[in-house]
Design a protein around this nucleic acid. Sequence first.
DNA 1: ACATACGGGACAGCCCGTTACT
DNA 2: AGTAACGGGCTGTCCCGTATGT
Lengths: 205, 205, 205, 205
Amino acid sequence: MARPERGRIRKNDPVGLRARVLDAAAASFQGHGYRGTSMQDLVTAAAVTGGALHHHFPTKCDLALAVIAERVSEEVALTWIAAVEAAPTAAEGIIQIFERVADHLDDQGSVSGCPLGNLALELSLTDEGLRAAIEGEYDAWRSAIARCFERDAARGGAPFVGEDPLAYADTVVAMFTGAMSIAKSEQSARALRSCIAVLRRIMAV
Amino acid sequence: MARPERGRIRKNDPVGLRARVLDAAAASFQGHGYRGTSMQDLVTAAAVTGGALHHHFPTKCDLALAVIAERVSEEVALTWIAAVEAAPTAAEGIIQIFERVADHLDDQGSVSGCPLGNLALELSLTDEGLRAAIEGEYDAWRSAIARCFERDAARGGAPFVGEDPLAYADTVVAMFTGAMSIAKSEQSARALRSCIAVLRRIMAV
Amino acid sequence: MARPERGRIRKNDPVGLRARVLDAAAASFQGHGYRGTSMQDLVTAAAVTGGALHHHFPTKCDLALAVIAERVSEEVALTWIAAVEAAPTAAEGIIQIFERVADHLDDQGSVSGCPLGNLALELSLTDEGLRAAIEGEYDAWRSAIARCFERDAARGGAPFVGEDPLAYADTVVAMFTGAMSIAKSEQSARALRSCIAVLRRIMAV
Amino acid sequence: MARPERGRIRKNDPVGLRARVLDAAAASFQGHGYRGTSMQDLVTAAAVTGGALHHHFPTKCDLALAVIAERVSEEVALTWIAAVEAAPTAAEGIIQIFERVADHLDDQGSVSGCPLGNLALELSLTDEGLRAAIEGEYDAWRSAIARCFERDAARGGAPFVGEDPLAYADTVVAMFTGAMSIAKSEQSARALRSCIAVLRRIMAV
DNA sequence: ACATACGGGACAGCCCGTTACT
DNA sequence: AGTAACGGGCTGTCCCGTATGT
């Protein structure tokens, strides 16, 4: 995957630099928001120069698109999609993910919210390209959960979803997104645990 | 009576001016976000001068606090608290509110999101005072729903809430907040309608 | 001197209010400078409202003139003019004043400079009226010292002043003003003590 | 080679631009004071853009520090330090400098004061870094004069300084600073000439 | 690829002074 | 006499993006 080094230490490291910037941007966008993050902040956080930053990401919007495509997307894929697919049933997987995130928030001092939700509210009305990218992430997220519900139903499980697994998937995503928003404003995982309690009853896990 | 001269007639109307500013700010904060709204925007939108604005709201943060306390709070009270309390049962009230909001979004061209949710994600980590104010609104919202569930349970209804009406209330708030976030990124009421379908089944309405 | 009270407690106290403002302004002008002091600072410091302040001093410049005429002038008169005149000889008086001020600076934590010197440098080129007022203070100060030198000379003392007591008076004022400036930048009375040492030798005290 | 489009021709000349800004700032700080000079004034005076100004001097304080270190310092070095060192004796040098400055003031229409003194009084209590920088300049100035007195004493001259050349140097600096302050408020070189007369007698020049 | 210099235009906050009002 | 509302305008700072340079 990575370009093979040839013993020589290259001063120019476009891949590493780009990755550093994306990491810094993803973290800062989540913590301080898109508008709350200046390019200068990233120059400092990623230890790059302004020129290099603009070489890789001509505009701030380009950077946001890359963060969504290469960082937020990955986080959704790992935290949610891979996890539900790996779980015995979608219901169990969903509960586990909620619990894992809630535990993680308790471990950390602060709650900075769902990265996708943060960007969704801040950028959806700003730029059509960004909006579409965010919508795409939501779609992938919801679709993966719906597929798991359908799989379970095909196996005779998940009776609660009835004829509309997509609506249930949508609702799970909405609950998570909303609970993270409340969690951010309360700086506690309480709302997530409330959702867990309700989900257990609904899905009989 | 009124004397609309071409020269400037100055009228001391602190209440009216303050109201104009709050209205303009509430609308712009919801549409473009807190950081996406400049004080100059409000000067234009509310037709006030910079000096007058500064007199009533020395800092932008003060203005946000006032918007939360005097506009967002009122909207939550009207749209949600009064509506659930007035409905025959909490379950019916909740469904009605979701439907009313979804219809409203369909009528309008664009979806600008839940005012409380927007501010929650953007400002919770910015200022402790703002975070606390937002937390208070969430608490009032959730508590009102929980009280309605308890009232119904006392009358022998709402069997689904079991022993924890607060968790159900929390979940409803999370679902609404999250669905509005998704709706904003999709520019459609779809997510809300998915939630309605699920809520109907859960609460058997 | 004071207007006779008639048993009734008057809420309006123009004299007291004016005095409070002048005190606050004199202190702040010396500490933070004329431009470094805002009318709002004085509103806070003197516990008056903006309206009352502007009622007594229509413009900031008017206030500065009043501070010079009623506070700085008084301080020069007390600290310098009365003190040299009361001393046995001008030379002894001058030394004593330098020492008194140096001791005072050592006692206090910080050195905020000579009130007249501060205003002189900041305002002389701003407004002709202010410049003239400051010049008048310098003139009164220097003249008083010169008169004392002449008085001593008439008694057969102060041989060092020769035929030009005014030049010596000027020099003393310059030394004091300059030493206070250096003292402010060093936050120490060192420069004043250096001047004392030299003055003792020159004037043989 | 160069392609002079109808648009603006941009030239990267960091040294020249920086020098232009420092020159404009030094002049304006002396004439109108630090607080009396706005960044916009400098943008106009130095014919630079706000962005370029901010690039070289992120804050006004940074600019003041640079003005002290690179302009005021140089002026002190040229006008005073080099001049006293070059003179046959310190006493003669000092008198010459006073006379040169007095003549210069008479030639010009207006007196804008000693650049170091102006900044000393206005900024010493504003920022610790500025205060320290100004103190350093005073120290260099005074030390240079003291060294010349010592040199003269070693050659058998300057009998008046006795055992404390530093106190005499201090006094000379104070006299100059104070006389310039008075000169500014009187808009005349009179105070300087008074000092010259006294210095001649004291130092027997 | 990367680094520095630079352009032009906002931004929030504050300023001094005036006017309406009690 | 004293209070509070209000008017414009300006301040220092920062912003994002581009151009020049290596």
